[in-house]
Design a binder for these strands. Structure first.
Lengths: 330, 330
DNA sequence: CTGTTAGCGCTTTCAC
DNA sequence: GTGAAAGCGCTAACAG
């Protein structure tokens, strides 16, 4: 199993020093004779030695391991953020793990028993108490805030991706096009469950409504239900724009609209969120609110470092902007 | 950092047994007095104890950790396979890691120094010698074969997702529609680099050509280039169908076609591969060759088990089927 | 049937 | 400046 694994011992042997010295050199936490140091570095290079993350993490050191907790593995959103982070730590031997929060009891325990250098909570559906438990492990935790969460206790990072002000931007854009009856379309969820009132997109939508009537299309578990509900709601309200929680749901909505022979954008404008690949391939192409994924990645990594230098109870906050990518659907 | 971590010691204390007994119970590899066993199990439950994966993996035991090596983090293909595997091992505390093979020297070393219960190679661009090195670590390795690889030495698993026979199916379907001049559209890549001749999709395409003329559209680094090349090639060949390496490229191709006022499917049929979400949202919706992701997941997990019971030099092969999902683009 | 013991590979006192 | 030794949490002989 461990066949051929190169250990510190091999390096020590090759460099003609003790194992301890190898550690000193690699961790740069003790002064080591220049010549010896060179020999160690040389041996490390030749052998291609990399310290075992398992052993290091047992001793409570960086495992070079980041966990990303998501709620939809198939969404390209998380993958693209990981891709951005990867770029930033390329060659440093980092590993990114994905876990889908399924709300079971075991899940948090499992997470807590690993040692991560950082945990990103990107799930919009994870339970509040689970977040708190994760923060309580003491591992650097960053929340990619989709919702308006209550404050947690302890030390953690909070990244506001700008979805709220972004949503206001979306509404303004729609307003400029003369749209007056704008509906908010929630993601698929368990049938019948209402829109999450703490969702920043929804909050921004409400805020920008400016007294206009709120029109919500939610509680759909799939395409068929969405189609029906969109037809029903149109009947009642004659909405002239759809602000959709994600690009995917926007794409679904566009199909639903064409089923009732409404044209985009002449009859109804449609906007999505995430600027994912899908947005490029709908017809017409989808206007979408883009999160600055590169900045999210950068901020996350920065927060991880800040979080590990102290353990003072404190919330580290980062506020980001969004960009409205205008295409032909508005 | 390790604040509040529950260890075996806590369980032993609570159950009034020695630490060893706790291990015996949990690993079920020694007979333990029924009463004691019950007490241990009870304590484990109450404390919510989960053995530290770091410590276990140091001892060469299952780390409950699977690595997925991919070449495109943003593709939903890999996420959906992981999602399928997650379902199969739900609640068992498994962790799935994603690594993007960037071809740098360090990458393989890093991989080799972790201990994984299984490594899935899903990258179509990883270097042959890197695959061999990964197999040589002795960790159960499964190759999701996109290409017609040469045989490696050692013990490993090989999953043929059926892309080759699937591609033939695609061609037959196109043939039934009376399509005679079918072009193969390669994925984006470094500008100018030709189609990978070992790609099963390409191999299937050629095989099904049956003497018809091969038309290849490759070497495009992005949308603009693809658009231009498609126009050029159409000028020369008047192709009547496009078999695209992925759904994404198919979606791009559809845009390119409409730019030169060719209608899908009346003028040109288009087919993609992967049956990803995109396929639902193009206009018309995209016919796509679907890999049986659930079976891939199941087979992978099964292969991992088989691989760890022996170390005999042997290639474990699984052959899967594909499904052609017909929509309106053909 | 169960406890003692020796590590896995590494970090880090604590002596020299 | 450097090495010996303890120990992170766990497994698996080896003795009882």
């Amino acid at each position: 199993m461990t066949r051929g694994r190169i250990t510190r011992k091999d390096v020590a042997l090759k460099a003609g020093v003790s194992e301890t010295v190898v550690s000193y050199v690699l961790n740069a936490n003790r002064y080591v004779d220049r010549a010896k140091k060179e020999r160690v570095l040389q041996a490390v290079r030749e052998l291609g030695y990399v310290p075992s993350p398992a052993a290091r993490s047992l001793k409570g050191k960086d495992a070079h391991h980041v966990l990303f907790i998501v709620d939809d593995m198939v969404s390209e959103y998380f993958g693209s953020i990981i891709a951005e982070m990867e770029k930033l730590v390329a060659g440093k031997g980092f590993l990114f793990s994905l876990a889908c929060d399924r709300g079971d009891e075991n899940f948090v325990q499992t997470v807590c028993n690993w040692s991560f250098d950082g945990i990103i909570i990107g799930s919009a559906t994870i339970r509040i108490e689970d977040i708190q438990r994760i923060i309580d492990t003491g591992m650097p935790t960053v929340i990619l805030s989709m919702n308006d969460y209550p404050a947690f206790s302890g030390r953690y990072g909070l990244i506001f991706t700008g979805l709220k002000s972004g949503s206001v931007k979306v509404m303004e854009c729609l307003g400029k096009r003369g749209r007056k009856r704008i509906a908010f379309v929630d993601s698929f969820s368990i049938s019948g469950s209402p829109v999450n009132k703490a969702d920043f997109r929804y909050i921004g939508y409400r805020e920008a409504l400016n007294g206009a009537c709120e029109i919500i299309i939610d509680g759909c578990s799939g395409s068929a239900e969405l189609r029906k509900k969109i037809a029903d709601v149109y009947e009642k309200t004659h909405f002239d724009a759809l602000f959709c929680r994600t690009d995917r749901i926007a794409a679904e909505a566009m199909i639903a609209l064409s089923a009732i022979t409404l044209a985009v954008p002449s009859d109804v404008s449609v906007v999505g969120v995430n600027n994912s690949r899908i947005a490029m391939y709908t017809q017409p192409r989808l206007t979408s609110l883009a999160i600055r994924k590169d900045e999210v990645a950068k901020a996350t990594l920065r927060l991880f470092s800040s979080l590990r230098v102290s353990s003072k109870e404190e919330i580290l906050t980062v506020q980001l902007e969004t960009d409205l990518i205008e295409r032909e659907s508005v």
